[in-house]
C-alpha cells in the first residue's frame, strides 16, 4: 500500500524543466551594480528590497539596502556547468554574493517572479 506521501506526490504532474538563468544576490555598498554580459548570461534587471532599480524609473526617495537581486538570463541554451563558470567569472570580477538561485522554466512557464 502506498504511503500518503507517495499518493500526494503521484498527483503532481511531472513537467519539463529547462535552465534559463540565475538570480544573484549581491552585497555592495557602492549602489546599483552595473554588469557587462558574462559568458552566456545577460543582466535583465536589478531589484532592491523587491523593487526594480534598473532599468527604468527609480523614485529618488527609494530606500535601498546593500543587498541586490540581479537577474541574469541565458542568451543561449545553457547547462549547470555554464552556471559554475558564470559564478567563477562573477567572483573574479570582485562581486561579493550571498546566494545564487537557478531559474528554471516548467513546461515553458517561468518558475520565478518578476520584480516590481
Amino acid at each position: 500500500m502506498p504511503t500518503f506521501t507517495e499518493v500526494a506526490k503521484a498527483t503532481k504532474k511531472k513537467r519539463e524543466i529547462k535552465l534559463v538563468g540565475v538570480d544573484m544576490y549581491i552585497i555592495t555598498e557602492k549602489g546599483t551594480p552595473k554588469f557587462d554580459d558574462i559568458g552566456a548570461f545577460k543582466c535583465e534587471f536589478i531589484s532592491n528590497r523587491g523593487t526594480k532599480v534598473w532599468p527604468g524609473f527609480v523614485s529618488p526617495d527609494l530606500l535601498q539596502v546593500n543587498w541586490y537581486r540581479c537577474r541574469f538570463m541565458a542568451t543561449k541554451d545553457v547547462q549547470d556547468a555554464d552556471i559554475n563558470a558564470f559564478l567563477d567569472a562573477l567572483t573574479k570580477k570582485g562581486w561579493w554574493w550571498s546566494a545564487a538561485q537557478k531559474l528554471w522554466t516548467y513546461d515553458g512557464e517561468p518558475g520565478f517572479s518578476k520584480a516590481y
Binding site: 506526490k9 503532481k12 511531472k14 513537467r15 524543466i17 538570480d23 531589484s47 528590497r49 523587491g50 537581486r69 538561485q101 531559474l103 528554471w104 516548467y106 518558475g111 520565478f112 517572479s113 518578476k114 520584480a115 516590481y116
Partner: peptide, 11 residues
C-alpha cells in the same frame, strides 16, 4: 511582498 518567489524544484 518583495516579489522574490521561485519554484526551487518541481514540487
Amino acid at each position: 511582498y518583495a516579489a522574490i518567489e521561485h519554484m526551487v524544484s518541481d514540487e
